[in-house]
């Protein structure tokens, strides 16, 4: 599904990613772990098409297409979804309108008709309930005045509605208490399928107790320095990142 080859990325004049390789297949869950400043968020942002990053070398192919040539909204319509580390508050735009506009944009791109208003409401209410969110959230402005946990749940709600193929979770566990973390993890686990892949970018192993990865990669100084199975995360938890950077 996703092939990242020898990717190098600059922010300004500083090289952040220094030859990153990663291959993700449908049905897999990959965890990207690493110390602060390793380039984890840069990787999420470059995948989602955020401006401000200069790709200086390498390639990203997604479903055999050149992902880097697509504007952010086309990536989203093609099934790439970024759950933000810091979801943006948007005054005056209701959650329900964003969800509907987004869903229709994705459907239109895929040759489907606009969603029926009643079907949409039934669907969105069911997904909201599944995430233990009050229906009132649908009619509030996007993320405005939401707690940290509510914002992250809202990201998962959007993900559940859009049913993307490639889900990138950027530090989704940050700022969550245990209860919120469990709800978010349940939401993600419910979306696991053989057609869908996940990349979880995280500093801590905590999230991986709830969402079990198939692969764990360590990102340090702009490269993946070690890959392994779920057990690698436990090793990192125990030893920290220092031993890898020295190697």
């Amino acid at each position: 599904m996703l092939k990242i080859k020898n990717l190098t990325v600059n922010v300004g004049t500083k090289e952040i990613l220094k030859g990153l390789n990663l291959e993700v297949n449908a049905g897999e869950i990959h965890a990207i772990m690493g110390p602060n400043g390793a380039g984890k968020s840069t990787l999420s942002h470059v995948l989602s098409g955020k401006s401000g990053y200069e790709v200086t070398g390498g390639s990203i192919t997604y479903n055999d297409k050149n992902l880097l040539e697509m504007p952010a909204e086309i990536r989203a319509r093609e099934g790439v979804f970024l759950a933000f580390q810091y979801p943006v508050e948007i005054a005056g735009v209701t959650n329900v309108y964003l969800l509907k506009a987004a869903l229709n944009a994705v459907r239109k791109h895929n040759g489907l008709s606009e969603v029926d208003a009643m079907d949409f409401l039934t669907l969105v209410k069911a997904k909201t309930k599944a995430l233990d969110m009050d229906e009132k959230f649908l009619y509030r402005a996007v993320n405005e005045g939401f707690s940290g946990g509510e914002k992250k749940r809202n990201e998962i709600l959007q993900m559940a509605m859009l049913e993307p193929q490639l889900c990138i979770l950027d530090e989704t566990d940050s700022g969550l208490d245990i209860d919120a973390l469990r709800i978010v993890a349940d939401g993600v686990n419910a979306l696991r399928s053989e057609n869908r892949a996940f990349i979880m970018v995280t500093h801590y192993q905590r999230l991986l107790d709830y969402i079990k990865p198939d692969f764990v990669h360590v990102l340090a100084d702009g490269k993946i320095v070690k890959s392994g199975g779920a057990e690698l995360a436990l090793e990192l938890e125990e030893k920290g990142y220092g031993w890898l950077e020295q190697a």
Binding site: S48, S51, P71, A76, G92, A102, A105, V106, H109, L162
Partner: peptide, 23 residues
């Protein structure tokens, strides 16, 4: 905010209209 809407599949021009309308 524009990027957030784009990342949900909404094109830039529409994203700007949504934000301007909301204002």
């Amino acid at each position: 905010s524009i990027f957030y809407l784009q990342s949900r599949g909404i094109d830039e021009a529409t994203a700007k209209h949504i934000l301007t309308f909301a204002f």
